[in-house]
């Protein structure tokens, strides 16, 4: 694979002494090796290696402050917007080291979309929210095409039927769950290849959460998804693989079923059995 050319063989195959389980994926899309993140003096992510596979949902779990959000923000370089944040190591997407100095973040982020913890629709209409991405990237050439993209995205996000008559209402007028699905629609309107979700349901009620989880499952066929979640049930419901982070280290990674039924690391077991978290 071309990916390997970007990372030395030794680095690709190295062992991570603090990580239990298979970090590689049979169908790798994103390869992370030796990733360290510092916020000023603070060492937030310590030496993480992890692969994320094609058409898979990987859940990142762990107690608050363990670095899981920081880690997925590395994958589309959202950490660039935080002053004093420094990332070392390699993160390779489709054979391109995304922390390479010559790489432009704009196409990267068009390729790797993101949904945030709190729904953050722009103070524009629902239509404009979804149309924003295709517009700035020049993905559509006509108004009709744009309308089509908006409709498809809203449909995929399961929001179309609820908002099709209110497309010109402000996005902020929707309920929390609808806003979050609007944000998902906004992200998929750009037709990304990877979607990162940072606790997308933490601000939502159970019904809205269920809708989003169902949506994630449907989206899996088109996209690679990494989701950070606080809820172990959610991780178990939506993901194929699960990675457990603890104090900035990746402790254990493996098939979701295995992690939840038969964790191999003491910390993972303590966490999923509810000793802390």
């Amino acid at each position: 694979m071309k990916v390997r050319e970007r990372i030395s063989e030794a680095s690709f195959n190295r062992e991570y002494s603090h990580t239990v389980g298979e970090i590689t994926s049979p169908n790798s899309r994103i390869v992370c090796r030796n990733v360290n993140v510092y916020y000023g003096e603070k060492h937030a992510i310590q030496d993480v290696g992890l692969d994320i596979g094609r058409n898979e949902v990987i859940a990142l779990i762990g107690p608050s402050g363990c670095g899981k959000s920081t880690f997925i923000r590395c994958l589309n370089r959202m950490n660039d917007t935080i002053p004093g944040c420094r990332v070392t190591g390699q993160i390779v997407l489709d054979g391109q080291d995304i922390y390479d100095g010559s790489l432009d973040v704009v196409p990267l982020r068009a390729q790797v979309g993101m949904v945030f913890q709190k729904p953050n629709p722009f103070p524009k209409s629902i239509f404009e929210n979804v149309a924003y991405g295709p517009r700035i990237h020049g993905l559509v050439s006509s108004k009709a095409e744009l309308e089509e993209v908006v409709e498809t995205s809203l449909r995929r996000a399961g929001l179309w039927d609820e908002v099709k008559d209110y497309l010109h209402q402000p996005g902020t007028s929707l309920s929390g769950g609808q806003q979050q699905r609007l944000c998902i629609a906004r992200a998929i309107a750009v037709n990304p290849e990877v979607i990162l979700m940072d606790e997308p349901c933490s601000a939502l009620d159970p019904i809205a959460t269920a809708k989003i989880e169902q949506l994630i499952d449907e989206l899996r066929s088109h996209y690679t998804i990494a989701i950070v979640t606080h809820s172990m049930q959610q991780a178990a419901r939506v993901s194929q693989r699960t990675a457990y982070f603890h104090l900035g280290r990746l402790i254990e990674v493996g098939e979701t079923a295995q992690i939840f039924t038969n964790p191999r690391h003491q910390l993972t077991e303590d966490y999923i059995t509810g000793r802390f978290g």
Binding site: D94, G95, P107, A110, E193
Partner: peptide
Amino acid sequence: EICEISGGSSSDRTIDVVHASL
């Protein structure tokens, strides 16, 4: 290179369109 890796998928990959106007 990127196109190659994507496994020769359809010509309207977002990334290419994005690059065009970059």
